[in-house]
Design a binder for these strands. Structure first.
Lengths: 235, 235
DNA sequence: TCTAGCATCGAACATTGTTCGTGTCAAGTA
DNA sequence: TACTTGACACGAACAATGTTCGATGCTAGA
């Protein structure tokens, strides 16, 4: 319980808050800070506004909606990555490397991946990154059709991995020991009736082996190798 | 505007509503009906309850939370798929086929994919499907490590595609002509300054070619070919 | 100094998931 | 048959979300 603010008191309090004027930039910055510190779910319009010392309605003068804000967050996240020139000799490694860079960015701001999935990124920074990806793929001598589809497929994979990692992390909570979960899951699999689930039982160990990075690298490897194979078959 | 129900009338009306008692089954059924008809976003606890002729609180006697309900939806969706015995000669086609089957199921209930991503499916139906997938991959002679990682990678891809398609569909609205969007996007790409974005300009046509099915099939092809290549390299 | 424009803000609205205490019905028992 | 018991169902309410509306105050120009 708290007394309502007396009107004459509120009068004198107001000017202090918004000394530096609001702007889209400042809103995006604050949102990203909050995401990095407390995760995406903690980032509500009220929370952003509070961090800026104002109320939620003030944000809507600079941002149309939360969806639009999400889009701006995505574009800001990929801003400033500088990617090397395409090198035809190393296209496979370069494709993998761009994947690693973007996953790292998405991991730094957990939850943004959810907004990234499914939205074709048309912001300037994102387009520059896509342009580079196209460059790497073309340098590899892949046919146009393969390049075009791959430019869709690779970001989809990266976003999905980031999203999955985020969901899994917030579902298990921060208190769980990953090693415990692993043995727990392996025992769960191994305990299945082996007449109905022979493969689960036989592979129980392999299924829980490897950490997130291993699995991500495996996926990158499969994708790049697959692109090479499909391209070779197509020409 | 509607008058509030008079209490004496409500008394006699009540028994009619819950003639057949509530149950987890009925809740899941109703939720899936609603999703198929109006999409995932329309499915709120209140909406489900209303469709069952009761209030939202009644659901919580049978369902712990909405998250848990989502999990049950996923398991129900994959229920009843019967998948053929593994055939070593056709493992690649069988892996692709299981992917198509699951994508179709996820498409029939738009929005459920979002709940499926990131959650290891431990329900009975889902486990049976995973067991089959493991069977196909082992029949292909892939090493255990590859089989185990692939069993993670393939569902991730399928869920991601379903999720992406869903987001894209609900973002553009149902009124948009996909052909219009395509030419619009192509012109957008083609209009970029070709000194900074040479690849976008050169590939503008290829980038917007192909429908959802083409792209999904391409991804399947890349993944399966990649698995074969990685496996061949590993042994 | 006065005025006009505009960013800002407090309060409110409609929805969401979820909880609490009460009411109601049906089966089991003396 | 009368009574108790226990589980289920329900209405109302709570906290939190994104978003909108008018009025309020500051600041720049005449």
């Amino acid at each position: 319980m708290s007394m309502p603010e007396p009107p004459w008191g509120a009068r004198s309090r107001r000017p202090r808050a918004a000394r530096t004027p609001l702007s889209t930039e400042r809103i995006v910055d604050t949102a990203l800070e909050l995401i990095a510190k407390e995760g995406y779910d903690a980032v509500t319009m009220r929370r952003i506004a509070a961090a800026l010392g104002t109320g939620p309605s003030s944000l809507y003068a600079h941002v149309a909606s939360k969806r639009q804000l999400d889009q701006m967050l995505i574009d800001r996240i990929v801003e400033g990555v500088d990617l090397p020139e395409p090198d035809p000799e190393r296209w496979e490694e370069q494709v993998k490397e761009i994947g690693r860079v973007f996953l790292a960015r998405l991991q730094a701001y957990p939850g943004v991946a959810r907004a990234a999935i499914g939205n074709i990124p048309l912001g300037l920074s994102a387009m520059r990154a896509s342009e580079r990806l196209l460059g790497y793929l073309r340098a590899g001598g892949l046919p146009d059709r393969v390049v075009a589809y791959a430019a869709d497929l690779l970001p989809l994979y990266i976003n999905a991995v980031a999203f999955e990692q985020n969901v899994r992390a917030s579902a298990t909570g921060d208190d769980a020991d990953p090693e415990d979960l692993r043995t727990q899951l392996r025992d769960y699999f191994a305990a299945f009736p082996s007449d109905q689930f022979p493969n689960f039982v036989a592979l129980a160990d392999a299924l829980v082996a490897g950490d997130e990075t291993d699995r991500f690298e495996f996926g990158l490897d499969v994708l790049v190798s697959g692109l090479a194979a499909v391209a070779a078959r197509e020409t």
